[in-house]
Simulated assay, not measured.
Amino acid sequence: MKKLLLVLTITLTLNCCNNDDDQPTNPIDQLPPATQTGENTFGCLLDGEAFIPSGGTNPLDCVYQFVNGEYYFGLQGNKRDQDNHLITISLSTNALEINESNYILRNNEFGNAYAGYLYATLPSFTSLNYGGELTITKLDTENYIVSGTFWFNIEDQNGTVHEIREGRFDMHYSG
Rank of each mutant, 00 (worst) to 15 (best):
C44M: 03
T88L: 01
G148P: 00
L46N: 00
E166L: 08
L6A: 12
A34Q: 15
N15L: 14
Y173I: 01
H85I: 09
G148W: 01
I98W: 05
Q23M: 10
G159C: 08
Y72I: 07
S90R: 03
D22Q: 15
L86K: 15
Y144Q: 13
G148T: 00
K138N: 10
F66N: 13
F51I: 04
D29W: 11
G56A: 06
F42H: 00
E166I: 02
L4V: 13
A115W: 01
G111Y: 03
P24A: 06
E155K: 10
L86P: 07
S101R: 15
D47P: 05
G56H: 05
L6H: 13
Q82L: 14
Y64L: 05
T41I: 05
L96E: 05
P59N: 06
M1D: 11
L60I: 09
D21T: 14
F66H: 15
L128E: 14
N112M: 10
F150R: 02
I154E: 00
L60N: 04
N102W: 11
G175P: 15
A120K: 12
D140M: 11
R106M: 10
L75Q: 00
I104N: 15
N26G: 06
G175S: 15
L60G: 04
T25L: 14
E133Y: 08
G111T: 08
P123S: 07
Y130S: 00
G55M: 09
P53E: 04
T57W: 07
N102G: 08
T121I: 13
A95M: 09
N18Y: 10
Q76V: 15
D21E: 10
P33F: 08
Q157R: 14
F73I: 02
I145P: 00
F73V: 00
P32M: 08
K79A: 07
N58E: 13
A115V: 01
S147N: 03
Q157M: 11
F125D: 02
N112L: 09
V67R: 15
I145C: 04
A50S: 06
Q65M: 13
C62S: 04
F169C: 02
K138C: 06
K79S: 06
L45Y: 01
G74Y: 08
D22R: 15
G148A: 05
Y144G: 03
V67W: 09
M171L: 13
N15I: 11
F150V: 00
R168M: 10
S124M: 01
F125C: 01
I145A: 02
N19I: 11
T126K: 02
Q23K: 11
Q23C: 12
T57Q: 12
N143V: 11
M1V: 12
W151I: 11
D83Y: 07
V146W: 03
